[in-house]
Structures are given as structure tokens and as C-alpha cells.
Design a protein around this nucleic acid. Structure first.
Lengths: 136, 136
DNA sequence: ATATTTACTACGACAGATGAAGTACGACAG
DNA sequence: CTGTCGTACTTCATCTGTCGTAGTAAATAT
């Protein structure tokens, strides 16, 4: 295996779960288990979406009209267990587009609050000033 | 007011509130109202943190040991209303450093799910394929 | 004297994420 | 033919962070 554990906390990626799912569905219809695995592989295991998060996202997004579900066989032979597939709607594509534009903005904004130009992998936190405030 | 630029939803910035506050406090101790205004100006009004979000972040982060509070006068003359100032702790600096490193990762990861190279401001969502799925 | 800005605090509600648990089907090994 | 593993979900109760509403009160501007 490439590495051992997810490195991105759900707190920071939280706002992008829906967008990630919509990206995958914008390419072809898919279903829970497959999407979950695709996110894992696309992120090189850096982010693993929880089952409950994923399925509750489906429910929410279908309610919002961004995706539609249908039940189908794994292949066209009609064999195997049926799955619930999801496909993106026009509203979903448009919402996805908005989120992409918002991402560009967000990136710029957040960047202002990050340490400038992290050299390689060493992040150095200088004490800067111990001035104001009570000496305890 | 400065502009009516598009705002960033709290959903997508949610994971970065603490980091933004810690960035500001990593430069000098500050207090609620000032931090709020600083976030506004730094983001050119693209993101305005809610008061309740801000003050509950203070409580949480102080509990977690990332910041420390003290009450002081606005200036050293001893005049004016007292404010609750916050200063970052060593644990806070280290946590902030982690978050910066996580941001670099997150940026890369999220980027995979965004439309490649958005030209200017036009985002085009091609239908791609209408193939699979029932025709209804 | 009054309005606005500054500087908070309290509280209830809510959405999205989570852990724990359970269901059920199919494939494959022994 | 029995058991285990992987697939493909569902239900539910709980937690965390954010938000709306509201209220307090001192300082400053008008």
C-alpha cells in the first residue's frame, strides 16, 4: 500500500464532500460503494469518506434536486444484486459549477491566513513577540 | 461600503475559522471586535465571521489550550472600557502549524475534484454523456 | 440628549458528520 | 453446505460548530 492513514481531517474537507461527489457523478452515474472507493484512490487514501456521511449526502442532494437515483443491476445481463445509482441533474451541474468558482475564491482568501511560502516540509513558528499581555 | 463582492459561504470556510483566528493572534494579541474587522478587511469583505461563531471559537480554543485570555484596558493610560484580549499559546502555534500543513494537502486533494483550469470566469459544464441510467 | 459604534454574553435551533449497529445478498473456500 | 469475506447499503442517536435572535452596557459621535 502507498501509505497507512487518512491525513485530512473531516473538519477541513467538510465543505467539499458534496462537490467531490458531484464531480464524480458529472463524469458518469455511480453508486455509494464505488464513489467511496473512487474518493479513496483519487486522494491516495488521504481522505476516506465515511459511509454515513456519503449516504446522508445522497439523501440531502436528491432532496435538493442535484442528483437523481435509480435502481439497476450491476451489468446489463440482469445478474447480480441491484444497486442504487445516482446521476447528476442539470441543477446539480450548475451547483457544481458554482462550487468550483467558490473554491477559487476560498483558496485565495484562506491563503492569506496561512504561513507564506512554506519551504519544503518544514514549518517554522517563530515566537515573534512576547510583548503585550500580562506577564502572568 | 467597499464592494458587493461575492461572499464565501460559511459551509466551505467552516474548517478554517480557528486557523484564521490563530493566524491573527500569531502576530499579536487581539480581541473579538478587532479580529472580526481584520478578517473582513483581509478578505476584502468576502468573508464576514459571525459574532457568535467568533466568540464560541474563543471559548473552545481556550478550553483546548490554544489561546489564553486576559482583560486589559484599550491603552496604557488606564482609560476606556476593558476588553478581553486573547494571546496564542505554544500549543496554539503548533496547532496552527499543523493546520497550515494540512491546508497544503487539502488544496491538492480538493483540486482533483474541481474543473481543470477554469478559463477567466466562465465555467462550462458539458453534458458529457447522457448514456447510462433509465430514460425515465 | 440621543444615536451609533464598540464589545461582548446567553440561549435555543439546526445541519452535517459520526459511531455503532444491523441487514442482506453474492462469491468463494474448505 | 457452512462459514467467512466483500459488497451495498439503512437506521438511529449523538456531537460539534454555526446561526439567529436577543439583550446588556460602556464609549463615542452628533
Amino acid at each position: 500500500m502507498a501509505n497507512d492513514s487518512p491525513q485530512i481531517s473531516s473538519d477541513v474537507i467538510r465543505g467539499y464532500n458534496d462537490t467531490m461527489i458531484l464531480y464524480i457523478l458529472s463524469q458518469r452515474p455511480s453508486y455509494g460503494y464505488e464513489i467511496s472507493k473512487q474518493i479513496r484512490t483519487m486522494t491516495d487514501d488521504k481522505y476516506v469518506i465515511k459511509e454515513t456521511t456519503l449516504y446522508s449526502a445522497f439523501t440531502r442532494m436528491e432532496k435538493n434536486g442535484y442528483i437523481e437515483s435509480y435502481v439497476a443491476e450491476p451489468d446489463e445481463t440482469g445478474s447480480g444484486k441491484k444497486r442504487t445509482y445516482y446521476k447528476i441533474t442539470e441543477a446539480g451541474r450548475s451547483y457544481y459549477g458554482e462550487k468550483c468558482r467558490e473554491w477559487v475564491l476560498t483558496k485565495e482568501v484562506v491563503e492569506h491566513f496561512m504561513q507564506p511560502a512554506l519551504p519544503e516540509k518544514d514549518v517554522i513558528c517563530l515566537p515573534m513577540q512576547e510583548d503585550a499581555g500580562p506577564g502572568d
